[in-house]
Write a protein that binds this DNA or RNA. Structure first.
Lengths: 133, 133
DNA sequence: AATAAAGTTGACGTTAACGTAAAGGTAAAG
DNA sequence: CTTTACCTTTACGTTAACGTCAACTTTATT
């Protein structure tokens, strides 16, 4: 049976995600992680590890840590009143819209890069035929 | 006939893209733009405007200005020797791979957000039925 | 007991990407 | 001629996201 309540040390996570322990502590400082402690030492649960993955995914998409913290917090509506829920919904939709924008940006940039690649390939061929002459 | 050789002032571009003139000058400082001058004053061509669009698109995808400058430079293979062209091709493909990664990240984050939205909607409904009771 | 391997908390340093004056030139409008 | 509207350069300030020691404690090993 796989241990479901596995835990991780800070250096284990650092190694796994190829970041420094300093970065992980920094994320905690900024309120994105709350590992439990065994004495002084931080102990990370699978849930903490998941949050870390969300943070890094956010970074790849250009999010600030504040934005990632917000998004992580969106997962759990918990004890919210109607106003809070509506505010949450608005933020979620805003973020989704931005993702659509990014999606479009990626498509266009991908096409641009494809053009550049073709141009470079043509230039290479031109050199090759010159060489042959 | 539409003027093909239209030009723009710095404040026109700033207004159009909703950024400050300071930012535009900063991009020039960093080597991303090279407007011509009429005396002291900067004059922007449609080509400059296009570069600015590329910069801003890059920003939306989390690129640094250095990275955007590189990408803009990729468009023109110009007078490159074979080694340079191969280096260029490698960079183009690397960037394309990263875009694929981002594409995947967006998909997953979109699903996560959808879940969050559903959860929030359920929470709202729960409140509504409670209200009715 | 001594050393090594990981962990901890400060605290100052660094880079990117502008923001924000300050001080002044230029050209059209009143 | 002076006010208004843009333009310029120079330069110091700011925020985010860590990097980089320093100084120390705890645990495991030799």
């Amino acid at each position: 049976m796989e241990q479901k309540n596995k835990t991780y040390s800070i250096s284990e996570l650092a190694k796994e995600f190829d970041i420094t322990t300093r970065a992980i502590r920094f994320y905690e400082d900024k309120g994105l992680l709350n590992p439990t402690r065994k004495g002084q030492t931080r102990i990370y649960t699978p849930a903490d590890r998941t949050k870390l993955k969300l943070i890094l995914r956010g970074k790849r998409l250009g999010l600030t840590l504040d934005e990632s913290r917000d998004i992580i917090g969106m997962y759990n509506p918990g004890q919210s009143n109607e106003d809070q829920l509506n505010t949450l919904l608005a933020k979620i939709r805003e973020r989704k819209n931005y993702l659509e924008q990014q999606l479009h940006d990626i498509e266009v940039m991908m096409l641009d890069l494809q053009e550049s690649e073709n141009r470079a390939l043509e230039a290479l061929e031109a050199l090759a035929s010159k060489q042959q002459a």
